[in-house]
Structure formats: structure tokens, C-alpha cells
Computed example of a mutant assay.
Amino acid sequence: MSAHANPATVADCLRLGAGFSQNDRNWIVEQFAPLDARLAAFPADGTDLELMVKDRAARGQKVTLECHIPGQPRIVATSAEEALHDALNDVRNDLRRQLNDAKTRTEPGSNKHLRTTGPDAPAAPLDPEQLVD
């Protein structure tokens, strides 16, 4: 994953689903702005964030944030926090954590398979006995 000419941002990729209106968009984009740093590793084209809430403002509401990134498994963050603001913070932080985990899994330094395969793979380690003069 590397920087793209047109990196994904919350403002470009967020779709509001059930329970939200376009009047909610600006404050939600502002609240989700910390995700931009992590989303920038992905192309805006094809990256999609969908935010939904079931039973908004009712006891037991459920907020769901789904993230679709080309070539990556779908990421879903949910929260049952009673206050909408708290639930949005919860799904934002969970999505950020999951994006960090996904990035770590695909970096060669964290994935032995990626470190030892491909054209840039290091040669097999030397046997210490071969180093004797």
C-alpha cells in the first residue's frame, strides 16, 4: 500500500445510510477526519465508507461503519453506545485500529511470507560454520 495520486478521504468516500440525512454529513465528516491519515494509503476510486444507524436516539441503537477498499476484505465496525456522538467515536476508533491491523499484515516487516518471497527477498542466511577462515 502506498500513497496514491488521488488518496481516499472521509469527505470523498463517506455514504450515509439508514438513520442519517445529508444534514448530518458535515459534522460526521469532521468527527471522522482522523481517519484521513490512514485512508490516504488507499485510492479514492473504489474506496467506500458507509455509515448506518439502527433505532437512532433510542435505547439500544446500533451504529455500523463499513469500509470497502479494492483488493482488501470488507471491514466492519459497530457500536451500541447510547449517545450517538460516543457511538460515532467508537466506530471511528475501531475502524482506524482495523485499518492499522490490515496495513501491518501486508507490510513485509510484519509478514514473514512477504519478507522471504519476491524479487527483493534476502538470500538464505549463512551458516556460521561457513564463516570460519
Rank of each mutant, 00 (worst) to 15 (best):
M1S: 15
A3L: 15
H4T: 14
H4C: 14
H4A: 15
A5M: 11
A5K: 14
P7V: 09
P7N: 05
A8V: 08
A11H: 12
L16T: 06
G17E: 06
A18Y: 07
A18W: 03
F20P: 04
S21W: 03
R25D: 02
R25W: 03
N26Y: 09
N26D: 11
W27V: 07
V29N: 11
E30P: 09
Q31W: 07
Q31Y: 06
F32Q: 07
L35I: 11
A37Y: 10
A37N: 11
L39W: 06
A40S: 09
A41M: 12
A41N: 07
P43L: 01
D45Q: 09
G46E: 00
L49N: 02
L49K: 03
E50S: 13
M52F: 13
D55W: 13
R56P: 08
R59Q: 11
K62T: 12
K62E: 05
K62G: 09
T64M: 06
L65R: 06
L65E: 00
E66L: 07
E66Y: 02
C67K: 00
H68V: 05
H68N: 02
I69N: 00
P70A: 00
P70W: 00
Q72H: 02
Q72D: 04
I75Q: 02
A77H: 01
A77K: 09
A77F: 04
T78Y: 03
L84K: 06
D86M: 13
A87Q: 08
V91K: 00
V91A: 03
R92Y: 10
L95V: 10
A102T: 08
G109Y: 00
S110W: 09
K112T: 13
H113D: 08
H113S: 11
H113C: 06
H113E: 14
L114E: 01
T116H: 04
T116P: 05
T117R: 03
T117S: 02
G118V: 04
P119K: 02
A121S: 09
P122L: 09
A124D: 08
Q130F: 14
L131M: 15
L131K: 15
V132I: 15
